[in-house]
Nucleic acid binder design. Structure first.
Lengths: 109, 109
DNA sequence: TTGATGTGTAGGAAAAAACCTACGTATAGT
DNA sequence: ACTATACGTAGGTTTTTTCCTACACATCAA
């Protein structure tokens, strides 16, 4: 459940697709999720486990089905990690904008 | 330079550490960056290449040195990817807060 | 109780990633 | 020109990841 686990979980396109499905369509049993993939059901099951270890999904047993639901909390760690870079990016962008403005002034004069 | 490349690049702790160094200490030659790692210099070089392929760093040759600098732009793709989940997370949190408020009201009565 | 259904787990093959030690190449300094 | 320095690349090994096909286990339905 560390930040490292979350980054690792997000590195796989299949796992990001799983998260997207849970976001757009809500909680679903494992089998229904697996149908959407060009991959064996057990493989999807393993991806779900990686997501669960990262705290990104939670399961609840309904009869013989297991419903998986999105747990977006850990994604906020990613957002927090991103924050200082966002500031950096904004500063660079601001500098670039200033530069372009100056160039435009030169053109006019 | 796709979003997938960016996610993959961020999956490695060593690469995230490289980005952090470039953020905190500014652009640096490859060798100076490599000194900070418990890893051979060529390995660090490969990590830098992965970051470069993802568009997260750029290099500029200064004499026989190669300075690497942070390119935070692609990280904004991650932030954008995160956005819908952030909304989801906020809604869940709001629901939880409401529930806790109601429980508190019950206690008082 | 028996058979079908929904899932996770085991075990193993194949692909990808992460390392390493040479080695090649270019620039700097003498 | 020659040597030292700063790198990237080649080639190969080890580890990790990904995916598969059985198989085991629990639940539902008859």
């Amino acid at each position: 459940m560390t930040t490292d686990h979350v980054f690792t979980a997000l590195a796989s396109p299949a796992r990001r697709e799983l998260l997207r499905l849970l976001l757009d369509e809500g909680a679903q049993p494992a089998g229904r999720l697996a149908e959407r993939f060009d991959m064996s059901r057990p493989s999807v099951s393993e991806h779900l486990r990686v997501l669960k270890d990262a705290g990104l999904v939670a399961e609840s047993r309904k009869g013989r089905e297991r419903h998986y639901r999105l747990e977006a909390g850990p994604l906020m760690e990613i957002r927090d990690w991103l924050t200082p870079y966002e500031r950096f990016w904004r500063e660079r962008l601001a500098a670039l904008t200033t530069l372009l403005d100056e160039m435009e002034d030169d053109d006019v004069s």
